[in-house]
Design a protein around this nucleic acid. Structure first.
Lengths: 172, 172
DNA sequence: TTTTTGAATAATGTAACAACATTCAAAAGG
DNA sequence: CCTTTTGAATGTTGTTACATTATTCAAAAA
């Protein structure tokens, strides 16, 4: 093997040619979460596009500028992670509010349960979802289905108001 | 300062007393995502609990065992990230399928649009959501609202079937 | 007995390193 | 003069190493 020459100006791998197009730094991650972190970091640089009602040029090509940007469902649906939980809805008593049997309800305990909000309450160990209605110093739980009667509600030992439903996830 | 003694058996910080209760490893993360990764790793060790229809003891305390475990909305609603996009629904023509004006639709392009599926199509540059119905060699787009007429559908230059709606996110 | 204090040991953020990837242009070959 | 070969140059990347910090213990001091 013979020498193949000396200095080469401008040689070498150019900056910014890494997988992400930006610098990286080592961050310490608990081992059980490394998989999910790597999936988040590597597989979806673009997130999932969100479109409005017009068909954008090249729709739905992830390389485009998105009509309404990009969406992280966890962040979009959960404002207060520590105060949030999910409940699966049963029955059709709230069909008028768009809540169907089997739907997933996102419940925020940090929101105030004011008049007209859809809330999760427990009555005798059963969870139920109804609309809260306060009038004339009394509180009612109103189903959104004429087949069901309103419930006279007052917090006691066996009843408790757990939180406000912010979102309904319905599977088709 | 005087010497305060020699060997101490069992002294020192005990193992497993870190923030996570498990070992950590450095992972290289693109700088723009470090914030979100740290938030994910640090702020929510428990995830968000998912409950069924009975009230578990101590509900809803994150320390409990959850009736149905823990849920990551992105993973739960998005099976094929690269083939998925979101569309915001307009109008009430699919009210019977639980799709309301302003709802967020999760659309999977990798699923086959078979008879009976709810699909996203573009017609003359407008996106619309309807139920696909194939019969007698023809294809129809059926609204789920008696106020709207079925549409005779065939893919042409100005029409295209974009994907199958898998989930509907409805905000209250 | 209680308090003070430094030794012992784990956790943590980051620098450093070795292995790898990428690009360039000089040298070789035609 | 053009094409191919080849090693230098330089960035990237996963992991190790390390200095600093945090935590606990028990001997020494009070």
């Amino acid at each position: 093997m013979m020498n193949r020459g000396g200095k080469r100006m401008g040689a070498g791998r150019p900056k910014g040619t890494n997988h992400y197009g930006e610098p990286t730094k080592p961050v310490r991650i608990p081992v059980s979460k490394i998989d999910r972190v790597l999936r988040f970091v590597r597989e979806r640089e673009d997130g999932i596009p969100l479109y409005g009602n017009e068909v954008p040029a090249g729709f739905p090509s992830p390389a485009d500028d998105y009509a309404e940007g990009v969406l992280d469902l966890n962040a979009h649906l959960v404002r207060e992670p520590t105060a949030t939980f999910f409940v699966r809805a049963r029955g059709d008593s709230m069909i008028g509010a768009g809540i169907h049997d089997g739907d997933l309800l996102v419940v925020d305990r940090s929101l105030e349960a004011t008049n007209g909000k859809v809330v999760i309450v427990s009555i005798n160990g059963e969870l139920t979802v109804k609309r809260l209605r306060q009038a004339k110093g009394r509180t009612w739980l109103i189903p959104e289905n004429p087949d069901y009667p309103p419930i006279d509600f007052q917090e006691q030992d066996d009843t408790h108001l757990w939180g406000v439903v912010t979102n309904v996830v319905h599977s088709l």
